[in-house]
Nucleic acid binder design. Structure first.
Lengths: 249, 249
DNA sequence: ACTAAGCTATGACCTTAGGTAAGAGTCAAG
DNA sequence: CTTGACTCTTACCTAAGGTCATAGCTTAGT
């Protein structure tokens, strides 16, 4: 019968020696024999048990749960798996919800950036102050200031170039409004717009899609683009959504 | 200016007093004033800051990260949000992967149950032993025994009834093979089959779908059903997949 | 002013699944 | 027999608080 030292077993199973010590401590996996020297030696059976442990650990069971699964003969594994599945699903959904929250926050920050840009372009003092006030209410004094600082810290030339390019793309899109959103040329313009947005941080498909929705859901966006040309906001949203739907992950 | 005691602030923000103590300890949220009695008193500003903290906590930022976000003027919030988003997405994908693992495990357990049932129905000794050996290799001595114990512990009458019903449904499905998988009658039989499967633990759509795939991917399944009537395995799989696709979550 | 009830402070220990380190003992090869 | 690699135990550390215990504080009612 083969015997494995801690090191050997650890390497065989891909865990650390400390982990084996820990499992011994909590009684989850005890060595087959303990030499007089106090060295731990494991046999084939223990290797098997360790593999079982790792299987369940992979599924995110806690060590206590695993101990129960392996040692309690009255344990209903199917029921446990079913419940565990529910847990995992809840967690996954929670992640999805968090993602949405983060996305919304990112979009809102982007919006603020744009508000700021508009302000820069000289939209009149009242508008500027209304924006600032709203933003402060939504974000708190400190945050908004920090964010503004960031934007102000942006390199002037980069900023101007970015702005110019955005305007070019917008003009082209306005002209292309008579085509359908799925038109290849329109989609190419949208692609350029998307890449521009991604210039300073990653815009994922989902974030970009959220931004697209804002074109019709946020009145400031809508007002801005509708004045440009009526129907433009909805057109942009549709084109962006289409773009996102067709874009590979 | 209003002052809030720990209790008041905690209730206002929906956190525990201990949490406020903790935030004070780590310097994340310090009270506006400390009375000589050492009592903590918070002002409006602190309430605002606490709300900010909770906003980021909701997004699963750690307290250390939140401190950085709120206190470091050089902090790039957009970049942090972008990175955080990636993290969340990874976690979500991990959850999805875990779900699949759990589903597969559940389906395998179910399969074993069926093997056991076949064995019971008298499929010959060699087959039984081949199954048992394979299952032991895959699952380890202990697990398989426990699982068998569970099945044996099942109420005899329930089991017989379940088996009988399963056979009835199978016979009906065999007869219905000349129809299309999307036929309403076929889908109704599949629905009954699905409900039967869910008799002893929740079978979700996804798990059921996985089971459907096993009809053609697992040779034991395939052999069993093909012997019944050629083409039955694929037919069942298609019908099950269709059922799952149309079933509301 | 006094007292009881309720609020608060500090300190300490607990939780997961090990990581990391110190100091001492042990094994195997040369 | 030495040296280097291995192993032992002990103990402290992580995140975000939960849950006591003990002692001091505040406030409402009398």
């Amino acid at each position: 019968m083969e015997k494995f030292s801690v090191n050997r077993l650890a390497k065989l199973a891909g865990v650390s020696v400390r982990t084996l010590h820990h499992y011994d401590e909590i009684g989850l996996l005890k060595p087959a024999i303990r030499a007089e020297s106090k060295y731990r030696y494991y046999g084939k059976e223990e290797l098997l048990r360790l593999q079982q442990i790792l299987l369940y650990k992979e599924m995110d069971f806690t060590l206590a749960q695993i101990a129960e699964i392996l040692d309690d003969p009255d344990f209903d594994l199917l029921k446990a798996l079913g419940e565990h599945r529910k847990q995992l699903q809840r967690k996954k959904q929670r992640m999805a919800a968090l993602l949405q929250t983060v996305d919304k926050t990112i979009v809102q920050l982007k919006t603020k950036k744009m508000n700021y840009e508009e302000m820069y372009k000289g939209f009149g003092k009242e508008k500027f102050e209304a924006y600032t006030k709203e933003a402060k209410e939504r974000w708190g004094e400190e945050t908004i200031n920090q964010s503004h600082k960031k934007i102000l810290a942006m390199d002037k030339k980069d900023w101007e170039a970015l702005k110019q390019r955005g305007e070019d793309i917008n003009k082209a899109l306005t002209a292309a409004m008579d085509l359908k959103p799925e038109d290849a040329g329109v989609q190419e313009l949208i692609r350029q717009h998307y890449e521009m947005m991604g210039c300073h941080f990653d815009v994922t498909k989902e974030i970009y899609r959220g931004l697209g929705s804002m074109y019709v859901e946020d009145e400031r966006f809508t007002a801005y683009y509708e004045k440009y040309r009526p129907g433009l906001a909805a057109f942009l949203r549709d084109a962006i959504h289409l773009f996102c739907a067709n874009k590979p992950a």
